[in-house]
Nucleic acid binder design. Structure first.
Lengths: 174, 174
DNA sequence: CCAAAAATCACCCGAAAGGGTGACGACATC
DNA sequence: GATGTCGTCACCCTTTCGGGTGATTTTTGG
């Protein structure tokens, strides 16, 4: 947490320096102050938003409420069905999924798959590339790759499609 | 979510206006540009951080862990099963699927996906690499890649995982 | 507070995947 | 015979993936 303030100040100083430098070289020709202010505003807004997202990312109060749903299922069709989940991660797809999905946490634990890894796996299953996943989760692509490698190893998969297949078989993915 | 962008732009304009106004009246005396930029930077950083906090506040995940308790009732559900296919391609997986799967041929035709392409797609979905698929179907790897490219194009997918996801959504894959 | 676990990131390298183009033969249809 | 579709294959090039290694930081549990 302390590091964020540091890089904030640092990047701020650097940005100001750069802006002032460029301002004195190029932009100053005519629309000096207005454009300058707008530039600084935009850049620092983006930076602030990014920082806000980043420092609150893990502040997701994981208020884990366990909701037990009893569902009556015809014995021949053991399809999981239950309430619609609030979490967009498990939300309905374009083809209105009528059954909410709950990952098999027992299996997940026996395999030693962490929550983060499962999160990455679900995004992999949705067809995102590592880069897209990285930008969605505000982490680097290398991190995504690391998680991928770990979860592939735990699932005994060599490819992401295989990992997705295994995940679905094991009840980890919808 | 859209409201935030609006108030963002609005507040941005107002802030810029205020700053420009004040800048021309008070601060301009001596430290014009530097102080001006710093002010804008600080204000907009704070604003960005605030905005980041706000738009992530709703994501304060009240992560309901939905535990689905399946209560089996005596089977009175006649399986709405399609014809059992002879092709082992659609056979039961490791997690004994009780309902046979029949691909949505209508959708398949509207998308212009040929049988061969769908065949390759199912193998892709099972986690096989292009090489493995090639050896299974007794064709060259290049051919598999060609089919893959075609079906990816028809599904609007850029990656195989994405193609698999789309295929499942569209009822082309089990 | 400390130790373990988890998450993050970087770098390298080889393999796999994907895009594009062109081509050829089989087969059906008109 | 001309046309069109489909399946097959090759080549080149770029991007993405996956494996391996090592490191730091954050979180968590005791």
């Amino acid at each position: 947490m302390k590091r964020h303030v540091l890089i904030f100040g640092l990047a701020g100083g650097i940005l100001i320096a750069i802006l002032q430098y460029t301002e004195y070289r190029f932009v100053v020709i005519e629309h000096s102050v207005e454009l300058y202010g707008a530039l600084v505003a935009i850049l620092f807004s983006a930076f602030g938003i990014w920082l806000g997202l980043r420092i609150t990312r893990n502040r997701e109060t994981i208020r884990e409420t366990v909701v037990v749903k009893e569902v009556f299922v015809p014995a021949e069709a053991p399809e999981r069905s239950g309430a619609e989940s609030k979490d967009p991660l498990w939300g309905s797809g374009p083809k209105a999924r009528h059954a909410a999905f709950a990952p098999d946490t027992a299996r997940q634990q026996t395999l030693g798959i962490t929550a983060r890894e499962l999160e990455i796996l679900t995004l992999v299953a949705r067809g995102f590339s590592n880069r897209e996943i990285a930008s969605q989760l505000f982490v680097s692509e290398n991190t995504v790759k690391t998680h991928c490698g770990r979860v592939f190893d735990k699932l005994g998969a060599a490819r992401r499609t295989q990992a997705v297949q295994r995940g679905k078989e094991l009840g980890l993915l919808p």
